[in-house]
Design a protein around this nucleic acid. Sequence first.
DNA 1: ACCATTGCCTACCAAGTGGTAGAAATAGAG
DNA 2: CTCTATTTCTACCACTTGGTAGGCAATGGT
Lengths: 193, 193
Amino acid sequence: METSDRILKRATVAFGESGYDATSLDDLARTLDIRKQSILYHYASKELLLEACVRQAITDLSVALDEAIRKSSYGWERIESIVKRVFRLANNRPELLGLLREVTRLGPPILTYAVDGIRPLLDGATTWLIEEMKAGRVRKSEPELLVLSAYSTIMGAATEVKLFEALGEESTIRDVAIRRKELLRFLKIALIP
Amino acid sequence: METSDRILKRATVAFGESGYDATSLDDLARTLDIRKQSILYHYASKELLLEACVRQAITDLSVALDEAIRKSSYGWERIESIVKRVFRLANNRPELLGLLREVTRLGPPILTYAVDGIRPLLDGATTWLIEEMKAGRVRKSEPELLVLSAYSTIMGAATEVKLFEALGEESTIRDVAIRRKELLRFLKIALIP
DNA sequence: ACCATTGCCTACCAAGTGGTAGAAATAGAG
DNA sequence: CTCTATTTCTACCACTTGGTAGGCAATGGT
């Protein structure tokens, strides 16, 4: 694999799991078994590296969601498909969701940058929801708020694993599956008329 | 006000809003118009300062929730009362919820410490929910999971303000009230039989 | 009057930070 | 082989970090 890609991948993990400020370029270089200056050759500054990570993360996220959307039809089935895909993502690549959360914590300018990348996804979801509401397949309410609520709910359920573990809740695949099932039941009751 | 209390308050805000790593003791001292060494006089290390902040935050949180519980009766009314109280808290003292989230990000040892403080609250909520389910006032499901889901949902709705703003969603008192109402509607449909 | 304690300070330090300058290796093209 | 461009490196640097050592004024008990 290309060095620059290796850097990008590890940086995304580090930024997403440990946070931007807690990750030093020296640490990062050490885990990659290269020197810090090699990182700075491919990405001129730490901030630009973060930007590249965010760009890639959003791309990956978009691809995953598109996939979930394409292989589902309408109404509840599609919501279920998306939730399942996000949970799988949270399991396979927790750093992606972690990075998104970290970015909202860091605020501008990187947040503004990320938001521009995510907005198409949210807009798509919103217009789709409006359609579904019109068709009577989803309970009528404010679609923008619903999308954002769903975002934070799914995000919370998918990323709060560390908290769960600290609380003694196990996090085997089975336990995560149970939580997913509960969330789906919850969403179904609340969303479907 | 006592110097040590001023430090504690500012530190909670800084840790909760900007994050632990992004907050230097020098910065903190500067905003308090004292010297860093005065901070280290009252709190022997940065980590101990964080611990003190967490302890105080959990106390404040407990007080607020107890209040919400005491002035409500049972079933839906109590849930509504708690959600409203948390939203008020997120509005008046966003740093409290921010600090909690930051702590789950930092992981052990501080997370373990915080969890010990919060567990009584969660246990209380869980046993209460079990009662309510028995009495048929709340839809039957896994109470532990329900508590944690509710936690992350409310937390998300209450703290994702920065994201909302970046997305162009206004965050006037009225808008927050609308989001609160939507969340309550959502919870009511999902929880009440 | 004495002295110990409290509270805040100045002065300093070792370790680490992101970043610069420029030398050495590597490799493909003519 | 030689020239050139790409990549990685060593050697630094200015600055910030959390933390130590110790001084100095105020306070209050004896």
